[in-house]
């Protein structure tokens, strides 16, 4: 799989084989089609941008819903998707995991995600009991619901090569929704960290899922989380 991370000046392409890091090509924007070596050209022939996302949270927090909303939005953007929960005893408050796959071509793989490109932590308290960065690819992304700065979280998680984003989803949710539901805020922060889908499409699917004021409030949550999320390389 190829993970493309684009900044304003360069695109870095990670070449992975089910999470096993094989190599990385960095090139300035504008020469995407003329690649550096013959070997990388062969691999890039079948370029597919499969992004694997793992969601952590607790039962009842809408983790599965968030994983599905993201998939619905990516569908609107013309992508191929999969969103599925890891089923354990589904009890309110128990740690739960959800997965989303987004790809430019049909997704054949149906296993769990072992080496996510992105981890989203919906509930800040799960980090104390679950190793949320387990299997995260090198240069992957962590998006967490946390009051602390990305620097401090990065230190605390002890991860070197990852982008870390944090957003105070709790405050945003309490301000706007008046309820401690963090899933939509984390969607906003996720899109900030990695433009997987557009704000328009995620807003559209949220309005479809929650018609009326609930939807409008959640869209407001997403937008505010998008603005407030902060990240470091």
């Amino acid at each position: 799989m190829l993970l493309v991370i684009a900044s304003e000046t360069q695109i870095s392409v990670r070449i992975q084989d089910f999470g096993h890091f094989l190599g990385k090509v960095i090139f300035p924007i504008g020469i995407e089609n003329r690649l550096i070596s013959d070997e990388s050209e062969v691999v890039l022939e079948e370029i597919r941008l499969l992004i694997e996302i793992r969601w952590h949270g607790r039962g009842g927090q809408g983790v599965v819903t968030a994983s599905r909303l993201l998939a619905h939005a990516a569908l609107l953007d013309g992508k191929y998707v999969q969103a599925f929960p890891e089923f354990g005893p589904e009890r309110r408050g128990a740690p739960v995991i959800g997965y989303t796959r987004i790809s430019d071509e049909p997704i054949m793989i149906h296993s769990h995600i072992y080496n996510p490109d992105i981890v989203v932590v919906v509930d800040p308290t799960v980090m104390s009991s679950v190793d949320v960065t387990e299997g995260l690819v090198e240069d992957g992304i962590v998006v967490a619901n946390a009051e602390e700065s990305p620097d401090s979280l990065k230190d605390r998680l002890g991860i070197e090569r990852a982008k870390v984003y944090t957003v105070d989803a709790k405050r945003i949710a309490l301000d706007i929704l008046k309820r401690p539901i963090y899933n939509t805020a984390m969607l906003g922060a996720l899109i900030k960290a990695s433009p997987l889908v557009t704000l328009e499409s995620i807003s559209k699917v949220v309005m479809e899922r929650f018609p009326g004021t609930i939807g409008e409030k959640n869209v407001a949550v997403i937008k505010r989380a998008y603005e407030e999320a902060k990240g470091i390389e």
Binding site: R68, A71, H72, L75, Y80, V81, Q82, A83, F84, P85, F87, I107, H110
Partner: peptide, 12 residues
């Protein structure tokens, strides 16, 4: 169809 793997997995 495979339980959970397909039954509860959202796809296009």
């Amino acid at each position: 169809l495979d339980g959970f793997i397909l039954s509860h997995s959202l796809e296009g």
